[in-house]
Nucleic acid binder design. Sequence first.
DNA 1: CGTATTTATCATATAAACATGATAAACACA
DNA 2: TGTGTTTATCATGTTTATATGATAAATACG
Lengths: 142, 142
Amino acid sequence: MLTQTAEYALRAVVHLAEEYPEGPTRVGDIADALGVPRNYLSKILHALVKADVCGSTRGPHGGFELVRPPTEIRLIDVVGLFDPYLAGGSGSCLLGRETCDDDDPCAAHERWGSVRQQVVTFFRETTADTFVKRRAIAAEPS
Amino acid sequence: MLTQTAEYALRAVVHLAEEYPEGPTRVGDIADALGVPRNYLSKILHALVKADVCGSTRGPHGGFELVRPPTEIRLIDVVGLFDPYLAGGSGSCLLGRETCDDDDPCAAHERWGSVRQQVVTFFRETTADTFVKRRAIAAEPS
DNA sequence: CGTATTTATCATATAAACATGATAAACACA
DNA sequence: TGTGTTTATCATGTTTATATGATAAATACG
């Protein structure tokens, strides 16, 4: 449903949300935590920097961090970078018609559009904090 | 959302549903009608034959046709052949966890599962006749 | 200033999806 | 039985996604 790359990006952002607002986290640490290829993740994080989702710092104590609080980072701005059809509406006609919109719909337009919209809405309305596992403050009760 | 191949398959099956229950349709005719590569479509249709969705006949007057009425062909059995994650539930954890089910769910399990389920349900409950454009029997009223 | 640490960038490799082309096998029909 | 039509199969090519590795540039700190 998502490309591997988009899923890596999402998981990295959720991970960074867990660290927020501590300082930068190294690529290697994120890669180890998520179990994804380090150099590949590096490229993905760099794309997120260019998209103004993450910030980066080089050198000792460097790494990546979110540029805004997790509550203000919509997942659509993360996965949409790597699965562009989720962001823009291109190639959206299930039956492959050139033009397919509300005015001139294909036979599947309404039903498929509705399903598709639910997916898009999910990523648009969900923010990076949603899937953060909060650490327990106190020890768990015995 | 669907791979190109799965979309070709879906469109071919909808096309064959429009011909049903006439005799077989040639690959070339289907390919021309849909605007998809002929030889590639041939391979896809062959897979649909092996999956008992289509039947094929060689030689003159040969081609492909549905083996059952379109109302009895679920789209999941078409797209699931080429997008296996839609059929089986593999790789379904958005956060990449090894085990993620109702008993031991990740932080995204419920919300993502619900969205995902809507897509799967769409293909499971929609049959090949749904998107057939019926030819008007009479001339359209002036 | 020098050195270790870290991201940025570039070059390359691998795997999968997508697509093309040629030949073989089955079939219809004269 | 022969010939043309059609799918079946196999071999190959192209493009994109995924991944790896090496080097360059920036930064912190002694």
